[in-house]
């Protein structure tokens, strides 16, 4: 099918706007030092890996059930609940950080209780960085999982029930296999989001190398100290993100 010329022109402008910065980054990257720059940033790489993997694990454990509730739940206020759950996707990350501080900070309503009851303080800890990353990753997983679950005919579960399958077996044997590609895509997107998290992390968890300084934070500070290293690390993140997008797309389209 042919594309109307006006749409084509606007799309071209938009694509250029999206691609040019990335091309600029690639051009500025000094290839010879990418590996050594990653080595120098190994603590940030490690923090990013630990934080994002734990965050995405939390996101799967909670986001998938949330997606299920949103897809199949029949109750009042579901629309409002969905909006509330998906809010972090559209919220400016720094606002997420402020909100986390307000709730889980040392003086936060919930954080004060955590501190008093368990002596748990989240700000300035790796756990805090995990919370910040999970806060933005969970909605992604939930959103994609909901779409995946919606794609599974609910009548099939009814048939499975008449064949003696209880709720958990129906979920595991009928729903999960059919929603698996969507869930895989959701996990990848949620992970990408967790790796890339910056605003909420620096606001809520602070910036300490080896503990809360993730790759994006390291890049931010490296830009002054050693801009070339910032370009190297940014390039690495671009490659990782692109890879994850392609993987998600493959999983989604399968």
């Amino acid at each position: 099918m042919s594309i109307p010329r006006r749409l084509g022109i606007l799309a071209t402008v938009g694509i250029a706007g999206l691609v040019v910065p990335v091309v600029g980054l690639i051009v500025r990257t000094s290839w010879g030092r990418v590996l050594s720059d990653i080595g120098d940033a190994s603590s940030a790489v490690r923090v990013s890996l630990v934080v994002s993997v734990i965050a995405v694990t939390l996101a799967v454990l909670t986001g998938v059930p949330i997606g299920w509730v949103l897809a199949r739940g029949r109750f009042r206020g579901r629309t409002v609940l969905r909006a509330a759950v998906l809010l972090p996707i559209v919220l400016p990350p720094v606002v997420s950080g402020v909100a986390l501080l307000a709730a889980l900070g040392r003086n936060g309503s919930f954080g004060r209780w955590l501190d008093g009851a368990f002596s748990i303080g989240l700000p300035f800890t790796t756990a805090g960085a995990v919370v910040a990353a999970a806060f933005v990753a969970i909605p992604f997983v939930a959103l994609v999982a909901e779409a995946g679950f919606r794609g599974v005919d609910a009548e099939l579960e009814g048939v499975a029930a008449t064949l003696g399958a209880g709720p958990w077996r129906r979920f595991r044997r009928i729903v999960l296999p059919q929603a698996a590609p969507a869930l895989a895509a959701g996990i990848v997107l949620g992970w990408a989001r967790a790796v890339g998290e910056f605003g909420a992390t620096i606001t809520f968890a602070g910036n300490l190398p080896g503990r809360t300084q993730t790759l994006p934070l390291a890049i931010f500070f490296e830009l002054e100290q050693d801009p070339a290293a910032a370009f190297s690390l940014s390039f690495v993140l671009v490659v990782i993100s692109l890879g994850m997008l392609l993987a998600a797309r493959r999983a989604w389209m399968r």
Binding site: G105, A205, L208
Partner: peptide
């Protein structure tokens, strides 16, 4: 041993004002 190395001096003051530090 600082808990965090903030991106600006104003961020330092903010963390103290919020009671996080």
């Amino acid at each position: 041993s600082p808990a965090s190395l903030e991106p600006s001096v104003r961020a330092v003051v903010a963390k103290v004002r919020l009671g996080e530090a």
